[in-house]
Design a binder for these strands. Structure first.
Lengths: 241, 241
DNA sequence: CGGTCACGTCATCGTTCGGTAAGACTTCGT
DNA sequence: ACGAAGTCTTACCGAACGATGACGTGACCG
């Protein structure tokens, strides 16, 4: 059970030309307590946004006519605060960077688990509606000397700014949000990269690069620990609770 | 059973026409604390879901009669929240098929490592039960001073972390979940290693290594006891109450 | 058009793991 | 007490795994 978004019922506009997709998405969103409208193409989407004033738009990247990027740009021009979650396929040229560039608040790669999508949407909604302190999506993640400012997407180590790339920050953010537990490379690929399949060494390398930046001694990491035969685990400096 | 199992015991339905596969999967899942039901084909699966109300379904894609896709669709129509993990042979069709069309929550390609499958299943269950970012809620097996944290895959002896290898942890976990009775080496080979046949000395050696790490005096073990002529038995420090 | 940066991939290398074998030791039946 | 069967202990070695450095590509910038 996905559970309802606390407090109010949100209205979500789902824009996708494939009914197969939009239908599944709608069912899941409705289940989680959202009102849902559908639009099959870009211009319908723009019209629907004007008419319905949704709280969030789920936008497929590849569509006939106005594609997701273009729709997103026009939305941004008009309503910069309207949260947008992008749907992209793996094979598509545009990856997340492109999506984020035009101002999407999050993206989900196809094929995705509907559950995952709903979680992302809820997270974006929570952030967007600026609701009170939300333990599920704090803007600042801190552990001892290490601080991750998810708003500015900047990390600090004892006050000193640490330049992290997009991937590195995503990875760190995920680990900080899910500390203590051992995550397999496949898990990380899926939840940080949004890939269902892929080369596990990608994770290995990025963990290494991240360690290089946030561990005092990268050869003997104290935060991002290797769980042999399993994956990695973030060890909180300060034990929660 | 000793050891407060913090975190609930899930029921999982495994659907596969190949007993070879489903049997191994079942053993691993049971070892990791799930109750398991088997179904050999699609219609049996649907019946079992209706009758048993499992928390999660592991579904083979290729099956005679109703295949995994069809089963998944019908499940979705009825119970959109029931998590499904797909088993697929490495193939090209998998991506398109699996992502949206049927809404599987994850999939694992054959051949797979049973351990990886169990990790995925746990991961899906965790998300599904909505306890995602909760580092305090992994299943803990405890007996007196000894603690096995299955989330972190770390054991503790009186608070002090004890580094265990994958096999050692698996073995300990099994014994903690099945204390008090004697297990033959063949049993352990089957249920911990997933082997039907094999050298019994493998077990002997691993028990030795485990004792070395968790017994105060490995020469006079108080937890993992030898049952002469039979095998081994985990002796709970605290008698179940 | 170079130069830089991010990032995925690959090859290599050192480490760890874990199964096996062999000998020492203990238990048990006679 | 003796031999046989069972168990413990140690050492070894191939295989699996992770760390590391380097390369190729594409995006972005001057």
């Amino acid at each position: 059970m996905i559970g309802s978004v606390v407090g109010m019922e949100h209205q979500v506009l789902v824009v996708d030309d494939d009914p197969m997709v939009s239908d599944v998405v709608r069912r899941y969103l409705e289940q989680s307590g959202c009102r849902v409208r559908l639009a099959a193409d870009g211009s319908a989407a723009l019209a629907a946004v004007a008419a319905e004033r949704p709280d969030l738009v789920v936008l497929d990247l590849m569509m006939p006519g106005l594609d997701g990027l273009e729709v997103c740009r026009r939305l941004r021009a008009d309503q910069p605060d309207l949260p947008v979650v992008m749907l992209t396929a793996l094979g598509e040229e545009a990856d997340r960077v492109l999506g984020l560039e035009v101002g999407a608040d999050d993206y989900v790669t196809k094929p995705f688990s509907p559950r995952e999508l709903v979680l992302r949407i809820r997270s974006v909604l929570r952030r967007a509606t600026g609701s009170a302190p939300d333990p599920a999506a704090p803007a600042m993640l801190a552990d001892g000397e290490l601080l991750a400012d998810t708003g500015r997407r900047v990390a600090r180590l004892g006050g000193e700014p640490v330049p992290l790339t997009v991937r590195e920050f995503d990875l760190l953010e995920f680990l900080l949000r899910n500390p203590g537990r051992a995550w397999s490379r496949a898990d990380l690929l899926k939840r940080v990269w949004g890939w269902q399949i892929g080369d596990h060494s990608t994770v290995t390398v990025h963990v290494r690069r991240l360690r290089e930046k946030i561990e005092h001694d990268p050869a003997a990491p104290r935060r991002i620990l290797t769980v042999w035969g399993i994956g990695y685990r973030y060890e909180p400096e300060v034990t929660a609770g």
